[in-house]
Structures are given as structure tokens and as C-alpha cells.
Simulated assay, not measured.
Amino acid sequence: MGEQVTRIGIVGTGVISGTYLDHLAKLPGVEVAAVADLDVSRAQTVADAHPGVRPLSSDDLLADPDVDVVLNLTIPAAHAPVHRAALEAGKHTYGEKPLAVDRAEAKPLLELAEAKGLRIGCAPDTVLGTGTQTARAVIDRGDIGVPTAASASFVTPGHELWHPAPEFYYQPGGGPLLDMGPYYVTSLVTLLGPVRRVTGRAGRSQDERKVHTGPRAGAIFPVDVPTHVTGILEHESGALTTVLMSFDVWAARLPRIEIYGTDGSLSVPDPNAFDGTVEIATAAQREWTEVPVAGGYAGAGRGVGVADLARAIRTGGPHRADGALAFHVLDVLESLLEAAAKDQPVDVTSTVERPAAVPLGASPETA
């Protein structure tokens, strides 16, 4: 086993783990060593399909000296407890979004990681791909002048139409804002910088929903979170972003993300994807035109943030999808829900530096 390989232990072998396993196998500097799940048979099945990966109990994985980083792919309610257990076991940790279900759970994780000299990272790492990073390069070059506003929209009729066990999407830590909002707000912070104040409204169309697929099709479950959230994010730069996140919309024609500047506008691709076409329209050229790729990890997939973290561990440099960014994004999202509940603007008390841009042609092993 090479000295420069960072060994990953995955806790949680649900739907998303397959994507991580597929992409981590292709990335330099990382190797999946073990998997664990409350359902021992599921962990065994995953291990059987990936030679060299050992199925362990969660406790054994956390204690395993051959695991350097714990990849936390549990449901949102378990994110903070698993992160804490990993840090207390002396492991670096990286997890799916959100970092925790709320700021009260999340902040002690950052404090614990700092106290122990360990790293904590968090999805989404989609912003490290060529889509958002090309848009970042366009903005940083000044091609649309000074960004003054943006719009961001995600709408769907609900994940219960395709997910066989969708309940967690409608429990604290879920809903459209905490499920999909991290992709959008992380991209917006990467492009426009941190947020200082938010205003919002929230509601829900149904108190119960129905599973549509899988062995539990027809089962009814409660909705415990808002399923339609809209609001305004005021960035520290002064730019204003209008956001709409909903599980209550059957169809719509809305941009994923658009950035509006003094000299032009920028169309940013789906922040839940790593690539996609970036388009620009300017005062001089009103027609939308495609922007050549100008940054980002090419061909990236879920797990590139883990590889970026692993490289930072080896070199001592910063990693991009870090805990401070994830905490600020969670702070923005929770503040938006608070603003909706209070019917008044809420100041976002945290801030963060924009993570370093990913240069064109970079590899997560070296940049």
C-alpha cells in the first residue's frame, strides 16, 4: 500500500455510496479500505462487489488503524454523531451535506476538529467541477463586470416519486432547503462570496406524502419540514440573490443559477452536477454564447472533495470543501428558515473566505 495513499472508511452504504465507490476507485491518492452500515448484510454486499474493501461494524471501522478518513454517508440526523465519533477516534472526516441538522450540532464539530488537529470536510464537492469553476473564472476575470444580483431555483414534485425510503427528506435536516439548498448556496458562495443577511418565506402543501416506488409503495408518512421556501440572500459584496427551493412544483421553466453583473449575465449549470455548459451574454453581445471550460477538475464525480481533502492532509495545505464553508452554508439555510418563521430579516453571524479556485487542468492530487 503506497505511502501517498489516503485510506477511506465509509459509514453508511445506502444509495449514494455506490456513486462514491465508483468515483473514488478512479481518483488518485485515495483508496476505500472498509465499509460499515447498521444493516450488516448491506455492508457485506457492498464489500463483496469491491475487492479489497472489508465489511466492518461502525465501531471497528472507527478503531481501524488502516482507516485515515471516515466518509460519512449516513442520513442527515446521524451526520453530526458520526462526525463526532470519527473525530474522537482520531480520524479525519468528510460527509454528505448538510454538515449537521442545525448550527447547534455543527459548531462543536468544527471546534473538536480544531482541538484535535484533524480535518473535517463536507459535500457538496460538485462546485469543484468544470461547471461552477468555469463560471468562477468568468466572474474573476471581470467578464460580466461587478456582480450585483443572482437567481437560484430548484423545484420538483418530491423525492418520494423515485426514492424507496423517502421519509428522511421530510424530517429535520431535510426538506428542499437543506437537501438541495447546499448545492446552490455553496455554488453561490463560491461565485459571489459569503452571505450576511437573509429574508425568507416558507410553507408546505401537504401534511402527509406517499411512497411511490419500491416494496413500501403506498405507505403514508408525515411531512415535518417546510417544502416550499423562497427568499433573498444579501452577500457581503452587496450582491442580492433570489432563491426558490421547492418539493411542491410539478413543472417549471426556471434557471438553475444566473449571475447578473454591470456588464453582462452568466448562466451557471446545475450545481448538483460537476460539469455542464456555462453561457454568457454581455452589453456588447446580447445573444447567449457558450464559454469554453476555464477551470475545475475535469471529469469529476462525487468523491473529488475527499481526494482534495486527502491531498491537503498529505501536503498540509487547505482543502476546498471544508467544514467552515459547510457551516456557513448551513448557517445561511437555517437563518433563511428562521427569517420565514419570524417574518423579518435575519443576520447571518458566520462568514467564510471563498475557497481557492480550481485552476484549469488541475488534479485533486496536486492542486
Rank of each mutant, 00 (worst) to 15 (best):
R209L: 09
T351L: 08
E160S: 00
E96K: 09
A251D: 14
C122Q: 04
T13W: 00
R209K: 13
P28H: 10
A310D: 07
G95D: 05
S153V: 12
A34N: 03
A149N: 09
M180K: 13
A310H: 08
S350E: 02
H228W: 11
G305K: 00
Q171N: 10
L244E: 12
I10D: 05
A356T: 12
S153K: 07
A339H: 06
E290N: 02
V185H: 10
H83E: 07
H328Q: 11
K26P: 05
L38Q: 14
S151N: 13
A356H: 08
I280D: 08
W288P: 02
P359I: 13
D331W: 06
Y20R: 10
A106Y: 07
V5R: 09
Y169G: 09
A49M: 05
V198C: 06
S350F: 02
K116Y: 08
S187G: 08
E287Y: 00
P98N: 01
D248G: 10
Y20S: 06
E338V: 14
I16G: 03
V101S: 13
R197S: 09
P292L: 08
L118T: 03
A294D: 13
P269K: 11
L178I: 03
E160W: 06
V293G: 11
E31T: 01
P359A: 14
D125F: 08
L325T: 05
K210G: 01
P176F: 07
A362Y: 05
V195S: 06
A80L: 11
A165G: 12
I139G: 10
V101M: 15
G175N: 05
S58P: 04
W162I: 15
G316S: 11
L161T: 13
Y169I: 01
E208W: 09
V352Y: 04
T126L: 10
G95E: 06
P182G: 05
I259K: 06
P98G: 02
G303T: 04
T315W: 00
G316N: 06
D37P: 05
V346I: 14
T93C: 15
L309W: 12
V146N: 03
R354P: 06
